[in-house]
Design a protein around this nucleic acid. Structure first.
Lengths: 211, 211
DNA sequence: TCCAATATACTCAAACATGGAGTAACGTAG
DNA sequence: CTACGTTACTCCATGTTTGAGTATATTGGA
């Protein structure tokens, strides 16, 4: 039997809110805030539901809806307990992955690369922002899918917006400085920026530590 | 033969800078800026080197260094070509994963959870910042490991610092408002925040679009 | 000097995860 | 009535992580 992972608990948490069929949940996850902090694919959901049942954290029941049959899952008492336990465990970290940023690190190896990647990131940032805006507007028009966690959702939303803004500002600077003729500056320029960041990081650390 | 992935090219890019043994590269990747945008585990490196050789993008040679033997890898002409091609391809996206943030979304299900997770995130943010600061100071003292991409590295560093700051500011707000008595506000409060974010997102989108 | 810890240099297995293809039954617009 | 979209999944190859395991060489301390 496969062990319980973060993904298992993510789904268990959603099962605490209501009962779902795997298909329904895949649709919900595609546009809910969860996508922003724990993105998982469709097929994973089906597997994890079975896993939860195998661990006794959920129960499955066959239903027939409009001719088609489906499995509907429900959280169990053990599931609720396991979920609360998980919610109190201080584990897991913040992880970021970006292929375009990775390519940017190799920008010196090809004259066109930096420009291509910056434009790509710009386009991506626009569509990410559009998606979030759509989702926010949908919630404002139709009401919140779950009232219970609307506040927590909105707080997460603030963070995600902050991060989008940071990325946008940075990208703006990068594209601006790309348009000016490149100073071929190399390590002197770089050292200057490093010193700046060292200062920022040091004061950030101080701020964090005496809070 | 396994296909070439982003990870393959990440390693190929580092192979363009110098020749490495797999072991050396794992050590380098643990503290280089690449960790921040494309984190991969040790064992992956060994597999990917072999994969690159299988595709003809690199060559391996056995060496004996201080009694122990090891494989040292070198990029091939085909490797250089493949790398440049990859660097120009506008693919890949920005992806974020955070178990503590996920738990925060379920904060309404357990009274202690939000506090535990915020404190955990605070501790993590401190150690992330410390790590980055150490790395920056090391570069300033010992010089850059690769002069060629020092500028690109410093630009990425700026972004990562921006993101750390955003997270820190947000976290500060959250912990502050957690200390005040919770207003039990729910959806009214949430709707207000949603409207705020909708505005921010809309103006962000506008800014992005007319750049 | 001997010993233990650490560094070098990997290999391997189990299981999580993705992405895409495939299956099948029902509903609906033209 | 037919084609397309939606519902409701399954399956496969392979990428990826985690952690343990193997083995040799160097180094610092009792």
């Amino acid at each position: 039997m496969a062990k319980l992972t973060t993904t298992s608990y993510a789904i268990l948490g959603l099962l605490e809110r209501r009962t779902w069929s795997a298909y329904e949940l895949t649709k919900y996850m595609q546009h809910s805030g969860i996508r922003g902090v724990w993105p998982r694919t469709e097929s994973r959901i089906y597997v994890e539901f079975k896993n939860l049942v195998a661990h006794g954290l959920a129960t499955a029941s066959e239903q027939t809806k409009q001719g088609r049959k489906r499995s509907v899952y429900k959280i169990s008492a053990a599931g609720r307990k396991g979920l609360r336990n998980w919610l109190l465990s201080p584990e897991g970290s913040f992880r970021l992955e970006s292929e375009p940023l990775l390519k940017l690190l190799f920008g010196d190896l090809d004259d066109g690369a930096t420009h291509v990647q910056l434009e790509h990131m710009h386009a991506q940032l626009i569509s990410e922002t559009e998606l979030m805006l759509e989702e926010v507007n949908r919630s404002l028009e139709n009401g919140f899918y779950f009232e219970e966690n609307a506040l927590h959702n909105s707080q997460l939303l603030s963070l995600l917006t902050d991060l989008l803004e940071s990325r946008s500002d940075w990208l703006n600077d990068m594209r601006q400085s790309g348009r000016r003729k490149t100073p071929k500056s190399t390590s002197n320029e770089a050292a200057k920026i490093y010193r700046q960041q060292a200062k920022r990081l040091a004061s950030l650390l101080e701020k964090l530590q005496d809070q």
